[in-house]
């Protein structure tokens, strides 16, 4: 899998994976009686985006924003309530045959947050990498050991033979996360979904994983969805940023546009909350009220209104639309002109 060869036949202007109106509602138990009150959690509401080859799209939000649900929907671990997931232009939501699912999983892979829980403790590293190769028939059995070596080398675990023979407990957190990335790469995917891949790692090794993501994006032209609560790391790896709040995308655009000139009050709040050694706490006080309210039975109002320092009258009575305020820069807020 030489990088140049792949780079040639990939058109980076056509999206690999496109999400339209993606929605996931969870029914919240409550009473089982027919007259009982049932409520609905709007985990993901009407989310659109597209993943392109060789591009990293970051989904940024706090816990409860719905960002991990988006990843799970894309990994087909949940069925969406509504909306389409177009993979190479084909809607995969209705394709449920084993053949279709395997084909999809062979090209869309996921990296989880916890590298300690996602490897089998009684199997060697080599086993973890050989399995997807055989399962997805990527390589004939005879070539598997060689491919395993290549994969380990790709993610920087050298000498590869040593690592292939180790057990997960013999590796550090960062090394384990590299194994998870290698395992995802085994099937030569077009898309990698990375759900908080560095948040459980030690600070000193996080940059190594982020640099590996950047490297894979450039060398293998993989389309990344990078999910994080850490907006600074999103700035480091991402080409495009989507900020989510209570199930909705509230702002999206090119990374520099969103982070240098944020439009939504929530994006500004997130940015100002990041620790910044340049100034003291008291120098830039952040006005915050309350915490993320999960979108349970949301009514007609901006979901951020109760915490918003600049809420206007309309914020409390009407849900704002996502509007393109500048070319490629979208925001969902009543401070900007809304369509009629």
């Amino acid at each position: 899998m030489s990088a140049e060869a792949i780079a040639y036949d990939v058109d980076t202007s056509v999206p690999i994976l496109e999400v339209q109106g993606l929605t996931k509602h969870f029914s919240m138990g409550g009473s089982m009686l027919p007259w009982g009150h049932r409520s609905t959690l709007h985990a993901v509401d009407d989310v659109d985006f597209a993943l392109y080859p060789g591009r990293v799209t970051a989904l940024v939000g706090e816990s409860g924003s719905g960002k991990s649900t988006v990843a799970r929907l894309l990994a087909r671990l949940y069925k969406p309530t509504a909306g389409h997931i177009l993979f190479h232009g084909e809607d995969v939501v209705r394709q449920n045959s084993r053949r279709h699912v395997l084909r999809y999983r062979g090209q869309v892979q996921m990296i989880f947050q916890d590298p300690f829980g996602s490897l089998n403790p009684v199997k060697r590293i080599g086993h973890h990498l050989a399995r997807p190769l055989l399962l997805h028939k990527v390589a004939p059995r005879s070539e598997v050991p060689e491919r395993v070596r290549q994969l380990l080398t790709t993610v920087g675990l050298v000498p590869a033979d040593d690592y292939a023979n180790k057990y997960p407990h013999q590796l550090s957190g960062g090394q384990r996360q590299r194994v998870c990335i290698a395992r995802a790469l085994a099937v030569e995917p077009d898309v990698l979904l990375a759900d908080e891949p560095i948040s459980m790692l030690d600070v000193s090794i996080r940059m190594g994983i982020l640099n590996l993501i950047l490297d894979l994006k450039r060398r293998e032209n993989i389309a990344f969805l990078y999910i994080t609560h850490d907006i600074a790391s999103a700035r480091y790896v991402a080409d495009e940023v989507l900020v989510m709040y209570a199930g909705q995308v509230v702002e999206r655009g090119e990374t520099d546009a969103v982070l240098q000139a944020p439009l939504h009050p929530y994006t500004r709040l997130l940015l100002s909350a990041v620790p910044n050694p340049e100034g003291g706490l008291s120098h830039r006080r952040v006005e915050v009220r309350g915490e993320v309210q999960a979108a349970i039975n949301p009514g007609e109002a901006c979901r951020f209104a109760s915490r918003c320092p600049v809420a206007v009258e309309a914020s409390h009575c009407k849900t704002p639309q996502l509007v393109e305020v500048q070319p490629g820069h979208w925001v969902r807020c009543h401070l900007y002109p809304q369509p009629d």
Partner: peptide, 27 residues
């Protein structure tokens, strides 16, 4: 050098987007 490495392990929010290395190896 460890303190320097730790300082360089947090990508900045402002300024140029440079490549930063963190610290190699593991504790």
């Amino acid at each position: 050098p460890y303190t320097v490495g730790l300082m360089n392990s947090f990508p900045p929010l402002a300024g140029e987007r440079l490549t930063i290395q963190g610290i190699g190896g593991a504790p």
